[in-house]
């Protein structure tokens, strides 16, 4: 597995311009914290400490403020997520339509439990609460993409075609 990226590795003039453009949208700078978390996470696959420091500096906050806010939100990670983050919805509509079967199937196929990552860092499996795909239950997201009306076979087909 490759060494996790630090924010310094991805910080370019363009990225910094994008950060500044985000901050400029808000009457108060601190409002930009969630979009900046996403910016850093999408660039690094997680939010490394130097990424938090970058955000703190940009927004005039201390590291406590940044860390405190970050840890409230379930989509934000302080360790590398993995190439493909499989987020299987477990809540009521998906539950009624067979998400438990999908979970067992994914556990077997990937050899990991929810909350874990494959040793090569390719897949992370997370059981998430309602993702707003209830009419397409059972559903999952891989990174930001939605997959709906799933069956174990469909899940296999989807994973097989991932680059």
């Amino acid at each position: 597995m490759t060494k996790p990226l630090m924010f310094a590795d991805v910080l370019t003039a363009d990225l910094e311009r994008r950060a500044d453009a985000i901050i400029a949208r808000y009457p108060q700078k601190r409002s930009a914290i969630l979009p900046l978390f996403h910016l850093v996470q999408n660039a690094c696959n997680y939010i490394p400490e130097d990424g938090m420091r970058f955000i703190a500096k940009k927004l005039g906050l201390n590291m406590n403020d940044v860390y405190e806010t970050l840890t409230f939100y379930s989509m934000l990670f302080t360790e590398p997520i993995g190439t493909y983050h499989i987020q299987l919805c477990r809540t009521i509509s998906c539950y009624l339509c067979g998400t438990s079967q999908l979970r067992e199937h994914l556990e077997k196929r990937l050899g990991i439990k929810p909350g874990q990552k494959t040793p090569d860092g390719r897949f992370r499996l997370t059981e998430v609460e309602c993702i707003g795909a209830c009419a397409g239950a059972p559903a999952m997201q891989i990174n930001f993409d939605f997959y709906e009306h799933l069956t174990p076979d469909k899940v296999d087909a989807i994973l097989d075609t991932l680059p």
Partner: peptide, 26 residues
């Protein structure tokens, strides 16, 4: 302005949403 949340059901409650939009815990 379109503002992304980051995974928290509670932020659908309007005052939690406002705290989150201000850059705090929801």
């Amino acid at each position: 302005v379109v503002h992304p949340g980051a995974g928290a059901y509670i932020c659908g409650e309007e005052t939690a949403l406002l705290n989150s939009l201000e850059g705090y815990r929801g």
